[in-house]
Design a protein around this nucleic acid. Structure first.
Lengths: 192, 192
DNA sequence: TCCCGACTATGACGATCGTCATAGCAGGCT
DNA sequence: AGCCTGCTATGACGATCGTCATAGTCGGGA
């Protein structure tokens, strides 16, 4: 999650992710990102000649790959993988995040989507890539559990939608309850 | 949805809702709201001495009441109300919105949550009220269908979470498919 | 040695933000 | 008439935004 020896460029992308998660895309300034990353201020325009759009775009893609990797990691930890188990695995991380660090940080994709999609930002395209990459990873894991590909895609859509909404609900209430609820309610449907 | 004879004050709250839906809370300026509402610029500080926070707070509450009313309206239109029918009713409005007006506008509660919760805004409290008010309305409708109160609350959480996530997914992809998918997938669980 | 490329430092620009101060208008009441 | 109150008009303040221009530092190859 956190490494000490990353390049200033990588640190800026990572910091952008964290700040977008807490304050939204419009609420995050490039100066904040540079400072949070302990990166030289002059390096921003060197590494990101495309400006803030490029930075946020890379942050969104970084987050999607991180989420996809997290989904793929489930198979190694579970002795008997099931769709409901995968969903619980995805939700567990968020419960831990909320339990340990509070409710300040949400999903970066949701934050970026809320601010940028309707504004016609160029980042919207990479947001689309990000969501599809994540969903494809989840669907791929379901296929590996012998779920038929077509249904795997539908279940992946359901899982990601429900997870995202539960994250938002939990953050607003300051209570991880919604995550627990949706995991329990969806379990029979996913494994049935 | 739109009335021509509302007071400048009401128009500003309504315009704030629409602008927050498309550009997010931080992306919406008070000058934009005033102009969009065709309201006198000087009236803003008169009606909202609490500034932007007050305006956004009222917008969030307005949206919650609107959503709650929409949920309650289902019972009148359905000859044989069921939980899955209610969920489809909620999703149908969004499919129509996306079909008619495109994907620029999302859910104002999600947009406000993404921008304000992590920033420690005072609006976060009213956001909490808004979500709970909406969820209580949905749960109330379920109880009216003879769903036991405790389970009604859980199903309401599931429905709202899934709906919110599907809205986000649909907006990012520019395709209302996720809404259709989650409605179909959740139906047997909700009515079973 | 010189130079050249990658990287960093710093200051400034114009735009926009939320907020405020102040003045002007209308209409009802006494 | 005079006045008070609800509402509107307008200009400005300081802060912050994303971006840019320019100069400085550093190390390795010719």
């Amino acid at each position: 999650m956190a490494g000490g020896t990353r390049s200033p460029r990588e640190r800026m992308v990572y910091s952008a992710v964290q700040l977008v998660r807490t304050r939204g895309a419009n609420g995050t300034g490039v100066r904040d990102v540079v400072e949070h990353a302990r990166a030289p201020r002059g390096s921003f325009q060197h590494y990101f000649p495309g400006g803030k759009d490029q930075l946020v775009g890379e942050a969104v893609l970084w987050a999607a790959d991180y989420a996809a990797d997290w989904a793929r990691a489930y198979r190694a930890t579970a002795r008997r993988p099931t769709p409901a188990g995968l969903f619980a695995h995805l939700a567990r991380q968020w419960k831990q995040e909320f339990g340990r660090r509070g409710f300040d940080r949400g999903c970066p994709l949701m934050a970026a989507a809320a601010d940028l999609v309707g504004a016609g930002s160029v980042v919207a395209e990479q947001l689309r890539d990000a969501i599809e990459r994540w969903e494809a990873a989840v669907a791929g894991e379901l296929v590996a559990m012998d779920v038929p590909p077509r249904r795997a895609k539908r279940l992946a859509t359901l899982m990601i939608s429900t997870l995202e909404g539960a994250i938002m609900s939990a953050r607003v209430r300051g209570d991880a309850g919604p995550l627990t609820t949706v995991v329990a309610e969806l379990a029979p449907l996913l494994d049935g």
